[in-house]
Design a protein around this nucleic acid. Sequence first.
DNA 1: CGTAACTAGATTGCGCGCAATTGAATTGCG
DNA 2: CGCAATTCAATTGCGCGCAATCTAGTTACG
Lengths: 150, 150
Amino acid sequence: MPKADSREFEIKLDTQLCFAIYGAAHAFTRTYKPLLEPLGLTYPQYLVMITLWEDDDQPVKAIGDRLGLDSGTLSPLLKRLEQSGLVSRKRDRDDERLVRISLTEKGSDLRQKAVEVTKAIGRAVGCGMEEAAALRDALITLRKRMNERD
Amino acid sequence: MPKADSREFEIKLDTQLCFAIYGAAHAFTRTYKPLLEPLGLTYPQYLVMITLWEDDDQPVKAIGDRLGLDSGTLSPLLKRLEQSGLVSRKRDRDDERLVRISLTEKGSDLRQKAVEVTKAIGRAVGCGMEEAAALRDALITLRKRMNERD
DNA sequence: CGTAACTAGATTGCGCGCAATTGAATTGCG
DNA sequence: CGCAATTCAATTGCGCGCAATCTAGTTACG
């Protein structure tokens, strides 16, 4: 039994929740990478495309709120998606501060291939829907608690 | 009930486990950041320090295996830790391919402050030990399954 | 009306994270 | 022994992720 003294308190990597999350996050990106490569997307770009498939024609800010990313991340990312011909960027006529991001036809069509990626990931995760859903909800709860406290 | 056709299959961001992990990982780094700043560490640097507090004088490769990072990430990171005076880097005498990383006295001493960070994170997570441990184990299992399949 | 506060997006700078390449040291095999 | 294959670390290049700063457009308030 370790003493309460700071000099004796152990910091064990394997017991830390944060390290488990860190590792799982990397495992996911590694699993996604080869699946998204044929679509010409990185994982964050894939997330942006999902938000657009859910709701087309959104301002950058809305996408950022949805994904928890700021313009420093999104501006160059969206420029790359535009370069790939998947989205278009136009100023909102009524509020010229806004840049609205819309799917091109190519971007819209990509969704069909993305569905296969989602299914492949489901197989890679290799656990039941309920188990995955429970884990997901626990993580969402955790995130909310952490965001509240600071 | 959506049809099995790819054109109809929905990809809902909020139902995706990967997005929950992605978000939780970012929430953790955001929570760690202000706590680690006084120590002059980033979160990945903190992970490296933990592995060294557990086992001093390790080759770069061993640290990489432990954390799942490669030399492309570790080389510059370790150089910054050396710059901060927390670690030293010396070639192994017996096998000159290896660079052994050791804690300096300053690096060793930092552990006491790190203990307080760990405790603060525990409070921020704001859930019981058993709950956190269960979540952690579920994530470790998930990671293992994903790494096996590719 | 006009200025101050606010908001949206872009840019810069820095630190990962990872693939690919390089170079040096070591091991293995004929 | 000698050469090929392997291993380790460093480097390069690219894409996030985020803080800080900047510019332009909008809103609020006197």
